[in-house]
Structures are given as structure tokens and as C-alpha cells.
Design a protein around this nucleic acid. Structure first.
Lengths: 209, 209
DNA sequence: AAAGATATCTTGACGACGTTCAGATCAATG
DNA sequence: CATTGATCTGAACGTCGTCAAGATATCTTT
């Protein structure tokens, strides 16, 4: 779970190049976009030679996966915060959805790396669906709290999947120009997200506010 | 002179290299995947020099957009066929959704190119939302036929957007390994898609079968 | 039919990329 | 203090996107 954090686990040559490379990659990603995220650019940003990363990552892919890992952790934190501040379970589902899409909108390049690597492996990372308090379980538990029948196991899994897919779909499309007039009509982006979620089966309709 | 296919609009040097390049790109995409789709590989597949494509496309991006255009046309046809064979308007929404996701599953590389180019431009292509019988309008009309109030213009737009985003989200996630056990539990992939759609707000619940 | 204009394609080159490998450098161990 | 092994550099290879210059085929004009 917890990788090296402070500069004491890896008192190596550079200090902690692995960490430095991930940070450099995030910096390049944010300032130059996903298309500029080359291994050489990351090495340049970190101040090392183009071959240096290969002592910490097998591949460019492996570096991207580390960056994505960082992203899933951030997303998880954002969802946890959203769930914590929701007044009711029914509203928590909407809050989760809005927080999810907002995260994607605020970190578009990172979000893209997260799902690009996932699709390449046809596999979602463990942070999302692995242990007890993964993001997936967070959504599922919220659904149960909102009134879903906990004895209908398959149904709950399907509803959780539906919610996740819906949020992901909106997250990927939210940036398209075509939706600008809808955002305006709704009175802002967040309001637009909320409105779209109202039309998705996120939570049983009679529970929605 | 040998004619490759029904092309009289461009009796040029090669016959119709533009068309040949798009076809070659589709072939490469299908057999080698999106990561192998380089301009040079396409030119190789078409039997021309690496610089030849630049007389028909400004960019690699422009070639990819042409390939994507092809994809949107195919998707549109698939949706039209699904809508045509649906017995009722309410079922038509489910049929549309399933057809959409099945298309993405059967042409994963193409589907990825379609949305990658769209996201790069932050713009969906005209084929999807442009004129009267675009795919977007097809979904919206189906919604109205299924009982949505046609006087609530904003609501209908939002519902259409919600449906599209939901379908796209499921289409992108459908390949993930995590969902295999759900597909098995539902008795196949199509059944899984239908079941997930049941949990999305695709169509007013009282109308769903 | 000849000739000039124009569109198409090839050749060759440039810089950037991912990756590898031999060698240099530095931290820790015995 | 010498050895070892991990860490980093430098140079190289093949591939990529792209461009400029030249060759070649088609179209137009006479």
C-alpha cells in the first residue's frame, strides 16, 4: 500500500529517483499534456539521463502505471471526502458522482493516463476494486445505505457497476464543446453534472432529492 | 488501367490512395492494435512511401480522424439497425444501448481511435450530433417515442446526454477482467449489458420491460 | 499532338522517441 | 581498504512524424 514517502526508505544515489520521476512525470503531464509525456522528457525534468529511469521502471508503461497509481489514490481521497460531507445516504450517491466527474475535469491528463493504462491491461487497478475500503466498495456501501436490498448480491454489484460506468462516461465526455450550452442552461458545470446524474439510475428515484 | 473499386472521382496516380490509406489503417488497426498504428506502417501496408500520405492528409491526426469518421458511420448504421428491429419504443432504448456497447466490444481498437481523436479536439464529430438523423437525434427521438415529455426541451437533452454517457462508460469498461464474473452470473455478455442498462436511467422505469 | 502546368509519389534527411549496453561512479559490506 | 553491487551516464540502434527537393504521371491548353 504505502510506498516510500520521506527520504529515508531509499537513501540511494540520487536520493529517491523513483519518487522524483513520478513527480516529474506529474509535472510534465500537468503543464504539457499527455502527448508530451515521454520518458526522455520526464528524465529531463528530473535532471537525469534518458536511461536512468530504467533502473526503477521496466518500461515507459511501468512509469505510467506508477503515475496512474498516484491518480487512483487521489481520486479515492476525493471520493472519501465527498462521501464524508454528504448529509444523507441518498445525497451521498450524487455527491460521489459529482466529485468523481469534478476530479476528472480538474485533472484531465491524469485521468486519461489512469484509464489508458487500465484499458491497455484490460484491468482496473487494485486501488479501485481490491480491498475493503476501495473506491468500488465505497460506492457499493453507499448504495446499500441508500436503501438497496443487501440480500440481492448480484443486483447490488450491477447497480454499482452501472453507477461507476455512468460516472466514467460523463467524466470522459464532460469536456466536449457540445455540452457547453447545456452547462449554461443548468447554471454551471456542477449543476450540469447533478442534472445529468438525476437522469441516470444512480440511486432509486424515490430517494433522490 | 486497373481499377481497384468503384472510384471514378479520383482517377489519379495510384487510383485512390486516400481511400486505400484509410482501408490500410483499418486493417493495421484490426490486426496489430492501436499502438501499432503508425503513419509509416499504414503507408507500408498500402504499398507506398512514408511521405505519400502527406498529399492526402495534413497530419497523422487527420488520417486518424478519417478512420474515426469511418467508425462513426459504422456505429450509426449499427444503431439504426438496432432501432429498426426493436418491437417497442421502450425496448428500442435498451436495444440501442446494447448495440452501442456491442459495437465497441467488436471494434475495440476502432472505438478507441474514435474517442481518442474526439477527446483531443474536445469535440464530438458531426456524424454524431450534427444533422437531423444523427446518432444523437436517434437516441433523443427514441426517448420521446418512449414517453418523455417533448415540451421539456432541456430535460430531454439531459436525458439523451445521460443515456449516451452511460453507454459510453459501459462500452469502455466492458472489457475489464473484473466484470467477467458478472457476465457469467448474468449468462453472457449481452445479458450483462442489458442488466447494467436496467440500472441506468436509460428509459423511465415504468416503461422498461 | 506537343508542351507546359499541376498533382502525385519517392528519396533522403532531420530531430525526437523508446530501449539497450558497456562503462563510470558511488554507497555499503566484509 | 578492497570488493561488490546498485545507480547513473554516454553512445548507439531502429522507429517514428515530418519536411524539402526531385522525379513521374496526369490534366489542360494550344
Amino acid at each position: 500500500m504505502r510506498e516510500s514517502q520521506a527520504a529515508e526508505a531509499r537513501p540511494y544515489h540520487h536520493g529517491d529517483l523513483r519518487r522524483a520521476l513520478i513527480d516529474a512525470a506529474s509535472r510534465v503531464l500537468e503543464s504539457e499534456g499527455p502527448s508530451a509525456l515521454s520518458l526522455r522528457a520526464v528524465a529531463r525534468e528530473a535532471g537525469v539521463s534518458p536511461a536512468a529511469p530504467y533502473h526503477h521502471f521496466k518500461d515507459k508503461t511501468e512509469l505510467l502505471e506508477a503515475v496512474a497509481h498516484e491518480g487512483w489514490t487521489l481520486l479515492d481521497a476525493a471520493l472519501a471526502a465527498a462521501k464524508a460531507k454528504a448529509p444523507s445516504a441518498a445525497e451521498a450517491m450524487n455527491e460521489l458522482g459529482v466529485a468523481y466527474v469534478c476530479f476528472a475535469r480538474e485533472n484531465p491528463a491524469l485521468y486519461r493516463v489512469m484509464y489508458d493504462t487500465a484499458r491497455d491491461r484490460e484491468d482496473l487497478p487494485d486501488e479501485m476494486q481490491g480491498d475493503k475500503d476501495s473506491a468500488y466498495c465505497k460506492v457499493r456501501d453507499t448504495l446499500v445505505d441508500a436503501g438497496a436490498d443487501p440480500t440481492e448480491a448480484l443486483d447490488i454489484e450491477l447497480a454499482t457497476t452501472a453507477a461507476w460506468c455512468s460516472a466514467h462516461g460523463l467524466a470522459e465526455m464532460a469536456g466536449f464543446k457540445q455540452f457547453q450550452h447545456l452547462k449554461d442552461a443548468c447554471g454551471g458545470e456542477r449543476a450540469f453534472f447533478k442534472a445529468v446524474f438525476q437522469h441516470m439510475g444512480l440511486v432509486p428515484k424515490h430517494l433522490a432529492d
